[in-house]
Structures are given as structure tokens and as C-alpha cells.
């Protein structure tokens, strides 16, 4: 009997069988993911609501423009593209593992699970680098007291407001005390000139030095930005982390032959659902934080 015929003739809802032709475990996994989609949905929609309520929001192309080992090169969105690619690739290896599971190929499942786990760890490492970069980042912003200062992006500070004009920067530099000027100057790379001397320079010299190096500075932006960014990418990262843990457990269970004994690799399928969901969420996080 062909599958299509069975599907048509079966009275799916009459009891004694699953109306979805799926085990309860898989049904539960799907509904859990739906539930989790509402958790993420609530986070992202909250973020959108706050963004809609603000006159100004940080431009992702300014915030996310660095790449490891690339110094101060302006590479908007490059690093996050790499992260996205890693996650898509690990999704592919996961679906291949599920595929091998359908064919009862233990070695194949093991191979692809390992690759998926590596992908997950690589993604987490990228995220760790990005967080560190933002948290220790060196962007110059105009504080409410009218002085310029080096500010990192944290949940309590957001240096990514509207960009300042040259005149505004010049005015603010006059009001900025010595230590702040020195710390601004030390973040600048200025034609190979030594930075260690900045502490010894006078205010006027510092201001000249800073202006010559074409300093870019902006207002502070709404502090909520950092909270939402770290909160949501952190919650996603937590999901990736738990996905990696689940995948490691699944790998070990495969290795020990649990699924061969059981006669099916449905657990791999369920872990796969979770892993793809993590990828799915990233697609939306990528959209909300990096693209628009």
C-alpha cells in the first residue's frame, strides 16, 4: 500500500493512534518548541516595541563592524555573517545526522553529530568574542555633562547615539578634562605614532592630536539597547549551549549503541528539532539586531 493511500484512508482522529502519525515524544517536542517560540517572540517583540518608542536607535552597521584580528578596519556585518554561516552549516550536519539515523547508519550519525557539536562550539566562541569586544569596546561618546569619554557597550551604557558633527566634537573636547582626553587619545591609532606618550601631553596638544586623527564620536543612546542585545543574544546563546550539551549526550548514546538497541534513532530526530529551532531563532535575531 502506498503511503499516500494510507494517509488518505486512515481515520486519523478516531482514536487508538496518533492523529499526526508521530510519537508523543515528537509531538511534545514540537509543542515545546512552539512554547519556546513564544518566549523568544516575547523578547524580540519587546525589543521592537522599545525601538518603536525611541526617536533614535543604534545603527547595527556602526556597532557590529569589527572582525577578530582585523584591528580597526570597518567591516560592517562581516563577523555576524560568519556566525550565521556557522550555524546554518551546523544545521546541515545535524539534518544529515538525522538522515543517517533514518538509514540506521551508526557511523554516519556519529560523524555528523561530531561536526554539529563543533559547529555549536564555534558559534559560542564567536559570540564570546563579540560580547567581549562590545563590553570592552572603545567608542567615544558625549556624556550628559558635556564632556567626551570612552564608553563600552554594556547593559548600563550605550555609546551608539546620533553621530556628532565636527563642530560639536571640537566644542566638547574643550570641556573634557585631562584624563578623559588622554584615554580618548590612547584609543586612537595615529599614523604609527607612539601612544604611550599621551599622558605626558598637555590638554591643547591632546585636542590637536585627537582632531588630527579624525575622531568619530556620538551622543549616548538609549541604555535599553545593551540590555536587549545582551539579553536576547544571551538567551539564544544559552539555547545553543544547551543544544550542544544535548547533542553531546546524543553522541554518547549513539556511540554506546543505545539507539541501535532501541531499533530507531528518534532521539536524534528530536535533538535535531531542537537544534534547528536554535538556528531558526538566530535567523530572527540576526534580522532584528543586525539587519534592520
Amino acid at each position: 500500500m502506498s503511503t499516500a493511500a494510507v494517509q488518505k484512508e486512515t481515520k486519523w482522529w478516531s482514536g487508538g493512534r496518533s492523529p499526526f502519525n508521530a510519537s508523543y515524544g515528537k509531538v511534545m517536542m514540537w509543542y515545546f518548541l512552539m512554547s519556546d517560540a513564544f518566549t523568544f517572540g516575547a523578547f524580540l517583540i519587546s525589543y521592537g516595541t522599545i525601538r518603536f518608542s525611541q526617536n533614535f536607535w543604534a545603527d547595527p552597521n556602526h556597532v557590529f563592524n569589527s572582525f577578530p584580528f582585523a584591528g580597526h578596519a570597518n567591516l560592517p556585518l562581516a563577523f555576524v555573517s560568519l556566525m550565521t554561516f556557522i550555524l546554518i552549516a551546523s544545521s546541515v550536519t545535524m539534518v544529515l545526522a538525522v538522515h543517517e539515523g533514518h538509514n540506521m547508519n551508526k557511523k554516519g550519525v556519529e560523524k555528523y553529530m561530531i561536526m554539529t557539536i563543533i559547529g555549536g562550539i564555534a558559534f559560542l566562541s564567536c559570540q564570546a568574542w563579540e560580547w567581549t569586544h562590545l563590553l570592552t569596546g572603545e567608542h567615544v561618546a558625549l556624556l550628559s555633562d558635556g564632556t567626551l569619554s570612552v564608553l563600552p557597550t554594556t547593559v548600563k551604557a550605550n555609546p551608539w547615539g546620533a553621530e556628532l558633527s565636527h563642530e560639536a566634537i571640537a566644542a566638547a573636547l574643550q570641556a573634557t578634562p585631562h584624563e578623559q582626553l588622554a584615554s580618548i587619545a590612547s584609543t586612537l591609532h595615529h599614523g604609527g605614532e607612539a601612544h604611550h606618550s599621551v599622558a605626558a601631553m598637555s590638554n591643547a596638544e591632546l585636542i590637536k592630536f585627537i582632531q588630527e586623527s579624525d575622531l568619530k564620536a556620538s551622543n549616548t543612546g538609549p541604555i535599553a539597547f545593551g540590555g536587549y542585545f545582551f539579553g536576547i543574544t544571551g538567551f539564544h546563546g544559552f539555547h545553543v549551549f544547551s543544544g550542544v550539551v544535548i547533542n553531546i549526550v546524543m553522541y554518547l548514546k549513539t556511540k554506546m549503541g543505545h539507539f541501535d538497541q532501541r531499533g530507531h534513532y528518534e532521539m536524534i530526530e528530536k535533538a535535531g528539532l531542537y537544534w534547528h529551532f536554535v538556528d531558526l531563532v538566530w535567523v530572527f535575531v540576526f534580522l532584528c539586531f543586525y539587519l534592520i
Binding site: 512554547s35 513564544f38 516575547a42 519587546s46 539579553g231
Partner: peptide, 22 residues
């Protein structure tokens, strides 16, 4: 619907303990 409260509760915990501004 409960996951949405979970989101709210997590954000509120952050506001209380980590100084965020949700």
C-alpha cells in the same frame, strides 16, 4: 501564554539585579 510571562519575569529579574533598563 506562560512563556510570555517567563520573558517578562526574566527581564524584570535583570532590571532588579543587573541594572538593565527594560
Amino acid at each position: 501564554s506562560f512563556p510570555v510571562l517567563l520573558s517578562g519575569a526574566i527581564l524584570l529579574l535583570f532590571d532588579r539585579n543587573l541594572g538593565t533598563s527594560f
